[in-house]
């Protein structure tokens, strides 16, 4: 079950990479912004890193645009 949901790509930065990410308007996370460009911050796992890299590539097209 978990592996399947793990495949779901992030469309926007507000989407969660996995259930460990809990940032929402109602339940905010202090690291949200940093996590968008450097994440995942609160946990380490390969699929989440990949997913986050994928959305950055999608948004930026070119890594030199990313300013950290």
């Amino acid at each position: 079950m978990q592996e399947e949901t793990g495949e779901k790509l992030m469309e926007k930065f507000i989407d969660h990479c996995c259930e460990k990410c809990t940032h929402t308007k109602a339940n905010p996370c202090r690291d949200f912004i940093n996590c968008c460009v450097e994440g995942p911050i609160c946990h380490k796992n390969e699929p989440c890193t990949k997913k986050r890299k994928a959305i950055i590539n999608k948004v930026a097209l070119n890594e030199q645009f990313v300013i950290c």
């Binding site: 968008c36 460009v37 948004v59 930026a60 300013i67």
Partner: peptide
């Protein structure tokens, strides 16, 4: 796009 703004720092 807010995502692009965030991506630019």
């Amino acid at each position: 796009s807010i995502d692009e703004y965030i991506m630019r720092g």
